[in-house]
Design a protein around this nucleic acid. Structure first.
Length: 516
RNA sequence: GCGCCCAUAGCUCAGCUGGAUAGAGCAACAGAUUUCUAAUCUGUGGGUCGCAGGUUCGAGUCCUGCUGGGCGCGCCA
């Protein structure tokens, strides 16, 4: 009985007992083992809805659930204090799941809970300098969210938007040329040391050079985009003018001081915004409207953007524009990624693209490795600011959480190498798997698919790293207490653990080494 | 000044649409290896969940105010 199956069981219990059928009860893993494998607050909520004693209702529900199940999946179903219903799975159920894990192999954890065509856009750094650590964080998070959404049944494309038009790229070109003449960059230009290594004679060549470096860095981080969407292609297709005309037709534009404005203030923004400058050139905002119109035109059901916190002020104006254009804004999510402050010991390192004083994403990868970089950046909620001490990450590299998880996988492979394929035998009596450590491990394995679904739904990669640590812990404890070699049932359990652990690392884009 | 985000153990962070006795890793201390990898495990200490109110059977979680920090508030991108 997975969480979903318990949910539908409880729904039919409510129906049979003729209780309030539409309460949104929760099913959780309770804080202590004595309270079962799963627990629901259903009695509390039903009691409240019916204005009766919640404990009595819980008692009734527990009895009915046990009756319907009639000992197939649950050893017992109990009710408890404020109105909880607690479910205790039979060991046979957990044991049976091991066979299912082996059978599903790489697919264990995947599901079809969602079926949308999703475009996720992230990083989208200006092609005027190397990627900084914040980009790196958003790259890792975006990449893993894409993997999560694929794993739960969606068709997903990843996209990097290239801002290769406008004042910034003009200043970039001027800065490169100035550096070659040993001159100062223009006002607001780029002064980092990387400027001298930019190759190319034309602006396009210079941008291509910078872009290629970004692409390589991302590849090194295990992040490979499906699409690189160049802003210039929007201009070539005259999409900006087309977008402005659409807004004009909707009567949400006006002219003032020679510029064309969008009446965004009336649509939830702080103020009105310029679409076309007095000199006739469009703003970045106009390009962004055209770009997102184009995204929806390409037939995606859902758009997800990861934007740096420095762009959060653009959320309301872009949503206002898309809404007035009658696009489904409810299917347009913007995840705001907070910054990373790098430290060397107590010393914070400022991230500024315009000064030479920055540590790039590439340097971080090279210093602490791809696996550790991905794990650390995935391991915290992207909505929270992250303080990241390079010295600490490097110094402690031997008991980094990522190595802890990888080590569990390597240990398993080492055991399995010592066997002659007994783990793959189909006729094994699993009923001997009764030890508490075995049970804990089996239960942890059982919850992997629902964890993936939950992490995908919340767009929370850090749930996956968390699970990886927990699974490794449960495995290591099992390993300490239970000798595996010579026990066919335990070999089965270990093999299922190997598959699950590998799938966790696969989802995170981290290597699953067979030896360490 | 206005807007968004954050504040949980010495440090870095989890805590799911409000649920049962607030967790993990690191750091500190004490132990475990003739046995499948000790990159492991066991145990100990460590908390007014920034502060003050409110909502209710129940608040780290929701609301209001305050304090402290990050980021925005361009006819830059």
């Amino acid at each position: 009985m997975t969480r979903d199956e318990i949910a539908s069981l409880l729904s039919s219990v409510l129906a049979e007992l003729k209780l309030q059928p539409d309460i949104s009860f929760r099913i959780d893993i309770p804080p202590r083992k004595e309270l079962g494998d799963y627990a629901s607050n259903i009695g509390i909520l039903a009691g409240r809805a019916l204005k009766t004693n919640p404990i009595k209702v819980a008692e009734q529900i527990a009895a009915k659930a046990a009756e319907i199940d009639s000992g197939r999946n649950f050893a017992k179903v109990e009710f408890a204090k404020p109105g909880f219903v607690n479910f205790f799975l039979k060991p046979e159920y957990l044991q049976k799941n091991l066979l299912s894990i082996e059978k599903q192999d790489h697919d264990y954890g995947k599901s079809g809970v969602s079926n949308e065509k999703v475009l996720i856009e992230f990083v989208s750094a200006n092609p005027t300098g190397p990627l900084h650590v914040g980009h790196g964080r958003w790259a890792v998070v975006g990449d893993i969210i894409a993997r999560l959404l694929k794993a739960t049944g969606n068709k997903v494309e990843t996209e990097f938007y290239v801002n290769n038009v406008g004042a910034q790229v003009e200043k970039f070109e001027a800065s490169v040329l100035a550096r070659r003449q040993d001159e100062q960059p223009p006002e607001g230009g780029y002064g980092g040391s990387y400027v001298s290594s930019v190759k190319g004679n034309t602006r396009a060549e210079m941008l291509a050079c910078m872009l290629e470096e970004q692409r390589q860095t991302l590849h090194q981080a295990g992040v490979d985009f499906n699409n690189w969407y160049e802003e210039s292609s929007l201009h070539e297709k005259d999409k900006l003018r087309w977008a402005v005309e659409k807004l004009h037709d909707l009567r949400v534009t006006f002219e003032e001081e020679g510029a064309i404005w969008f009446k965004s203030e009336a649509l939830g923004d702080d103020k009105n915004r310029v679409l076309m400058r007095a000199d006739g050139r469009p703003t970045y905002f106009t390009a962004d409207i055209a770009y997102h119109l184009d995204k929806f035109e390409r037939g995606f059901d859902r758009l997800i953007n990861i934007w740096g916190t420095d762009h959060h002020g653009y959320v309301s104006r872009l949503k206002a524009a898309l809404k007035v254009l009658d696009l489904p804004v409810e299917n347009f999510e913007i995840i705001i990624g907070q910054l990373v402050t790098l430290y060397r010991g107590d010393q914070p390192i400022r991230m500024s693209k315009r000064t030479g004083e920055m540590i790039t994403f590439k340097e971080v990868i090279e210093e602490i490795g791809t696996d550790a970089t991905r794990f650390f950046f995935a391991a915290t909620d992207v909505n929270s600011h992250l303080d990241f001490d390079l010295e600490l990450a490097k110094k402690k590299s031997n008991d980094n959480p990522v190595y802890y998880v990888q080590y569990a996988h390597a240990r398993i492979c080492s055991i399995l190498k010592k066997t002659s394929g007994e783990a793959s035998s189909t006729k094994v009596d699993l009923s001997t798997l009764m030890h508490p450590a075995e049970r804990d491990l089996m239960f942890k394995l059982l919850t992997w698919p629902e964890l993936v679904a939950e992490a995908a739904r919340l767009r929370h990669p850090h749930r996956v790293t968390e699970y990886g640590r927990e699974l490794a812990t449960v495995f290591h404890k099992f390993y300490e207490q239970c000798r595996v070699l010579g026990d066919p049932a335990r070999l089965k359990l270990v093999n299922a653990s190997r598959i699950t652990l590998r799938n966790v690392l696969e989802l995170l884009g981290i290597n699953a080494p067979e030896a360490m």
